[in-house]
Design a protein around this nucleic acid. Structure first.
Lengths: 345, 345
DNA sequence: CTGAAAGCGCTTACAG
DNA sequence: CTGAAAGCGCTTACAG
């Protein structure tokens, strides 16, 4: 159990004593509001720098009612790819806008997200930018509670918009994968394999998107060409092993993630099968690896940079009072970038 | 500029009123200390859950003097590789130990690290776990100030231990790279190339380590075989381009990072040069990509998991008062893991 | 067993 | 222009 320690830091009282004035006056010069004589003012400033005084943030918050500058970023998980990229971009824009931002990552266990958001509520940041991948109704409830207490939240993440009356910047996974599969079809492929990583939900937007593209082209869906692999490097190896063992192989693979795709490609090469000569591969996200892979990956991108910019703008507008209307919703889906991994059949 | 909002959340007064008692009593039942009648106690608990009361964390801190449970992780940068892995592992162990932890990443500009740590000081967490890659003396000074105010800090990161009287869990980069180069030499290589990524410092520990291994074997250092490439995917491409353009090529490359190494290998293959048949490659860190690369990478690993465990233990022991002695220092350096990318000459 | 009081470090009216 | 006072939401002795 944590042991208790009292602080021994310098307070506004110390400054007042040192400057030979009262704490009200010190507060006034620090807040730059109200009248203070030039003389007193500089005495205070001197004392501040001599003592190295830093106002206690918590005490300020308590006195003022709420932090002015603190916005917390919540996310259930930070991966080594697109979620981190989004998180960092959001932080970047918020920081540029003058906010103090930190990351709060809950992990993905049951109730973890809700627990972390509850702690955030107790911390009372001015706003929360919440990544909504993989959060459940209990977490959503906490977010709603936070808003009811006067907090502002902006959500970003998947297209499954959650029922909170807050601004949301969404990513249209369904349309994204639809575009990928459609490109494959346009390139003449009809036998298309698919990896549905780490999420067995048959109604996953990416699966819906794929099936929509297939259906449009009158191509039947072949469940035996769908493989549920894990994420990232490990997933790429799994997927390759599965693919190589397939008796009848698709002519193209639609792979949900560039890291998975790049490892997949490498494993195929090791086994002597060539991309795109023997199989075409389309990746997702346009991660850095996509362009310097064995076979530079044709992908459908994820607009994480612009999305994050919008998140920061929405938040800022809300916080400054510049915008006070109903909840806004933006849905983006990225675009096709062609490289070498998809060949015309 | 942020606009001000008053909170409208439920306070201990509301609970007291609802339960028909005083706030002292409410505090007592919530803190589970002192005597309270069973009846009053349950009335309070009822009120708490009915109202959804959450104690204000800042007010608690103010009244108690310091947070009990909050430890902040500081890092200048979170990459997509080993730093994030370390950060996540530290968070994991700390979370398991019952602390509330969040990430505070400053970015790498001038004075950024110091600025963020200063804000941390104002926040007054119970402890700071600080990653010391890339932080300057101004940041160190802030950390020292924080300790003087009674905070506890544990550092982790590079082997350049900084002069703070706190526990430090260090990674011996010099020895790590020494081991890599030595392995290459033991495998018969004498013409060894080297990438010194993103850091032109000729006294960098990794460079010292390499030169030490070379010197021990009586092999002269060849500066023309050292290339300063950027980090990650981009760096791998750069390095490959540089290598392919080399008139006289080394027979082995020592590459500071697995992602760089894996992209390097892929680019070589694209150019028709084979690993390890034509060149041997040794990587660093043992990232997930190492084992599923085109040529599974022989690497020297980074003990991020054990290191992080020690960081958490040091912190916990300090916080509980279990250990109160002088600053401790642990230095680890990883180990060689052989795969396929290095061939005997 | 319970409430009134003082105090944590600050801010914001309010008198002087 | 400046200080004393009240209050933010809590905790911790201290009387009863």
């Amino acid at each position: 159990m944590p042991v208790e320690t009292r602080r021994e830091s310098v307070t506004i009282y110390d400054v007042a004593r040192e400057a030979g004035t009262s704490k009200s006056t010190v507060a006034r010069v620090l807040a730059k509001r109200g009248y203070v004589s030039a003389e007193t003012s500089s005495a205070v400033l001197d004392a501040v720098s001599r003592l190295g005084y830093q106002p206690d943030e918590q005490a300020q918050r308590l006195a003022k009612g709420r932090f002015d500058n603190v916005v917390d970023i919540f996310t259930a998980e930070v991966d080594y790819g697109i979620v981190l990229r989004r998180t960092k971009a959001v932080q970047h824009f918020l920081q540029v806008a003058g906010y103090d931002v930190s990351y709060h990552v809950s992990g993905r266990g049951d109730g973890m997200a809700a627990g972390t958001i509850q702690k955030l509520r107790r911390r009372k940041p001015r706003a929360i930018a919440a990544c909504t991948w993989d959060i459940g109704p209990d977490a959503v409830a906490e977010l709603v509670g936070y808003m009811q207490e006067g907090g502002v939240v902006v959500c970003f993440g998947t297209d499954e918009h959650i029922s909170i009356p807050c601004d949301q910047v969404l990513f249209d996974e369904e349309q994204n994968t639809y575009m990928a599969v459609r490109h494959l079809i346009e390139m003449g492929h009809r036998n298309i394999g698919f990896n549905a990583h780490d999420d067995p939900n048959p109604e996953h937007p990416r699966i819906i998107g794929m099936r929509r593209a297939l259906a449009e082209a009158g191509i039947p869906f072949r469940p035996e060409w769908m493989h549920n692999s894990r994420v990232y490097e490990e997933g790429g190896s799994q997927l390759a092993a599965w693919f190589l063992a397939l008796e009848r192989k698709p002519s193209a693979m639609c792979i949900n993630n560039d890291v998975v795709a790049s490892v997949f490609v490498q494993q195929l090469y090791r086994a002597g099968v060539n991309v795109p000569a023997d199989v075409s591969v389309i990746g997702h996200d346009d991660s850095p690896i996509a362009s310097c892979c064995m076979a530079p990956l044709t992908v459908v991108s994820q607009p994480h940079w612009t999305d994050s910019q919008i998140v920061a703008r929405f938040l800022t507008e809300r916080l400054t009072g510049e915008y006070d209307g109903p909840a806004r919703r933006v849905i983006n889906c990225g675009e096709l970038v062609q490289r070498e991994s998809v060949a015309r059949l």
